[in-house]
Design a protein around this nucleic acid. Structure first.
Lengths: 252, 252
DNA sequence: CGGGTCGTTGACTCGAATCAATATAGGTGG
DNA sequence: CCACCTATATTGATTCGAGTCAACGACCCG
């Protein structure tokens, strides 16, 4: 048996950390995991909660938030299914993680996981690879925050989310949009307010940019969170300067 | 002999990656390193240069830059003495690293280092710890870019640089400023333009904010890059919302 | 000492924030 | 199932901070 019974049906097994480590390590890891669900809005960890546990996202979206005493806050990362959530090797958290949508997590104790990292170097290696990718993504996002217009910010966020929320062939988005305009349909995991918090904008500005994209016939919306990208090429073009190497696999 | 002959005099040995790994690993690492110097402005690595090598900064400052074809660019990180420079575990770079000042590096081949990581898990562990700290710092910086005024940005940058450029007792800054206003003197490793690129501002805006801080008697300048922080408490206060856990050791 | 880069200051513009009013979605209870 | 109610979202009018364009000044080099 290659992978544990309980993992064989897991939809993210192949693309998550567990799929990047050896058989033995994967089996050891599966022994300390358990599935948990939580509703949107729940805080997974933060400056307050010090109980250390980590997780892999099975379904749903997690937002990483930097919040200051005066009320200002900035979403500094989104984590999607197959991403790792948590901050190993420290006891104090500088940011908090919240469920943006209903979540299904494959969760495990922080201490047990850190012991496993010591026992199985390939777990540590796989985590290092993910953290490095997160770091690249975070720095790419810094460019977005510092150097782009509101229009580019909103278009880029839509593009990134579309990219990560698409069903498998992970790069179907990049390829499909080179062909003709097959409209892409997606349900955003974020409210307008949360989009604004991602982008360093106010929610009114996000609204106006969305309206403008609609007026240009580039996107269409129905309901509050359902979007259709009618002209993927246009979205790509608007955000083109922001996605230098995004199609190479960086997260968020 | 605890550490190699050539490392025993190294000023950053204790605080860099080499100081966080075992004796045997440190000796193995010292065998593949060599000191190199380079002038300010030199590109260490980037989308163009694909020759993979890594380094630990002995003296000087490195800036990590995201640059786009249309000329916009954003500095997404500063690395100081004892920091690790390079991007292991990938072949393509999404950002470039440039010498902000004259540099002295302890450099080593990427392939040799990655082999060493496999042989000595504590090297991998130490690198993971550093990358996680960089990730925290990068996310903290995202808050700065997305949610603060020009004034707060400039004050925070000055504070961060002062923090990292201070001679040893690493946290002398935080403590000394709780006492009376012992003016701190520092030479910035950045031009106005580079400060602006760090902060997502224009250089004129950086100038105006510096002038304003001078007018308030909080800082004084002499020459282009020499600064004195006359009122550290004020600098801290202006940037207070930005440094939630900065004193806990995050880099940049 | 002279020239050129870098830094500073000023006048004006513009994009996003702010303040305010209205509209719609989507859940709740009747 | 429908009408209501409240969150959320949208749009409008205005303000304000930072950007832009331009001129001037100072530092540092040869």
């Amino acid at each position: 048996m290659a992978i544990s019974q309980r993992c064989v049906l897991c939809p993210v097994q192949a693309t998550s950390l567990c799929g990047a480590i050896g058989e033995e390590a994967a089996r050891a890891l599966s022994n300390i995991t358990h599935r948990i669900r939580m509703p949107a809005g729940r805080t997974i960890y933060g400056a307050s909660r010090s109980s250390r546990s980590f997780a892999i996202i099975v379904s749903g979206v997690v937002k990483l938030v930097v919040a200051k005493p005066d009320g200002r806050q900035q979403i500094v990362g989104l984590q999607f299914p197959s991403d790792f959530v948590g901050r190993p090797l420290t006891n104090h958290q500088s940011l908090s993680a919240e469920a943006a949508t209903t979540l299904e997590l494959c969760s495990f104790s922080g201490n047990a996981f850190e012991q496993l990292m010591r026992d199985y170097p390939d777990i540590e290696r796989a985590l290092l690879a993910r953290v490095l990718a997160d770091l690249d993504a975070s720095r790419e996002w810094a460019f977005l925050l510092g150097r782009t217009t509101a229009q580019e910010k909103v278009a880029t966020l839509l593009y990134h989310i579309a990219e990560r929320m698409m069903p498998i062939p992970s790069n179907s988005l990049a390829t499909s949009c080179n062909g003709l305009h097959a409209p892409v349909s997606l349900t955003l995991p974020l409210s307008r307010m949360e989009m604004a918090e991602c982008l360093g904008l106010r929610l009114e500005t996000v609204c106006r940019q969305i309206s403008q994209l609609k007026a240009q016939g580039i996107i269409a919306t129905s309901g509050r969170r359902h979007f259709e990208i009618l002209d993927m090429a246009a979205i790509r073009q608007i955000s083109e300067n922001v996605r230098s190497l995004a199609d190479a696999g960086a997260e968020l």
